[in-house]
Design a protein around this nucleic acid. Structure first.
Lengths: 191, 191
DNA sequence: GACAAAAGTTACACTTGTGTTACTTATATA
DNA sequence: TATATAAGTAACACAAGTGTAACTTTTGTC
């Protein structure tokens, strides 16, 4: 019972993401959010005590769905296939890396937020260990260079997502060139 | 004449940079800045009409000194030497890329800010054309792969700066590994 | 020593955002 | 159809940031 909602959780998360990417953590306000959703600000307080609570819940959602996508990668047997699948996941939604950085700014203003942040930490470890097995596969297949530390390998892959494609290349060509660079570098072989 | 200043422009820029990196563009306030500098907020208004004016002036300073550093690179003859020098410049101050992104958010609130932003645009073009000749040298020496667009080449180099070094490697080793990856990729040759 | 000028402060009016309370509106179901 | 209940709003008190005007403090120079 009760009346129909004017905005779904999906609406809310979508708008939240947009506002975070446009204005950053400190620029994100309930006032903006309510205006975008075309509801009163107080309506949002029916569901979340404050901005930290909303953002931590949103981050949990975002990280969970990203990990879900990542898990599917392990279904591929060879490292090469997993590598290609990873790129598909990352380039499917190019904002995970930025969003994750924003998530770290959330202050633990109450117990619920504290718990959400702990849950985020646990998910983060899960994410990392999921990627760890991916890297180990690459090392056992003797594909990844031994001189490269794990976090450099991951950092490189995740940072490439943030390079804006202003080259005129199609998305597909762009991603392929990116892969080529990550695998074999930007210099010709003899150098 | 007049009394001694409590804070230098250098102090101000240094604190500005720190606040920008810590709180982002929307989190940067005159109130914070004044507190950090241990002066009254009104004192800052003696020199800058508003936050946009201060930030655009700061950005000009930052970009100018970066371009100065870059210009020195062209003194090296070979592409390889220029490439190494570029890395030294970029890793000397790892925040340029982030700062530049923040600079784009400045609103043209008055004529002075408008002019500063135009000056920033011109400097940005100067920066890009300076890097352009660097890339052209690399292409003419047949070192850079033809398949790689200019902006991907530059994007890769500038994004690597943002990868946090949590590997335990020394700064020097980290930078060297980074170079290796950019030049020849993360995969072993046979793959 | 007086005084111009630069540097700094205090205080005020204003704007934007927060969190809460008391209220109204809509709807499933008993 | 009445009614419990969930959804939504309006309004208030408060906090933080902005921009400005009137003031005081310091210092070099005549």
């Amino acid at each position: 019972m009760g009346r129909e909602r004017k905005f779904s959780t999906e609406d809310l998360y979508h708008t939240t993401k947009q506002l975070l990417l446009d204005h950053g953590y400190e620029g994100f306000t309930f006032t903006h959010l309510a205006n975008q959703l075309d509801v009163s600000r107080a309506a949002i307080y029916k569901y979340y005590e404050n901005k930290e609570e909303l953002l931590s819940e949103y981050m949990l959602f975002e990280l969970r769905s990203f990990i879900d996508d990542l898990q599917k990668i392990s279904k591929h047997r060879s490292f090469k296939n997993q590598f290609n699948a990873l790129f598909d996941v990352i380039f499917n939604d190019m904002s995970i890396y930025q969003i994750r950085e924003i998530g770290m700014q959330i202050a633990s203003v109450n117990e619920k937020v504290k718990k959400n942040k702990q849950a985020l930490d646990r998910l983060h470890i899960k994410l990392y260990s999921s990627l760890q097995t991916f890297i180990e596969l690459g090392r056992s297949e003797n594909i990844i260079k031994n001189s490269i530390p794990d976090n450099l390998f991951l950092g490189f892959i995740f940072q490439t997502v943030n390079i804006p494609n202003t080259s005129g290349l199609s998305h597909q060509d762009w991603v392929e060139t990116m892969k080529e660079v990550i695998c074999h570098g930007m210099f010709n072989k003899e150098n």
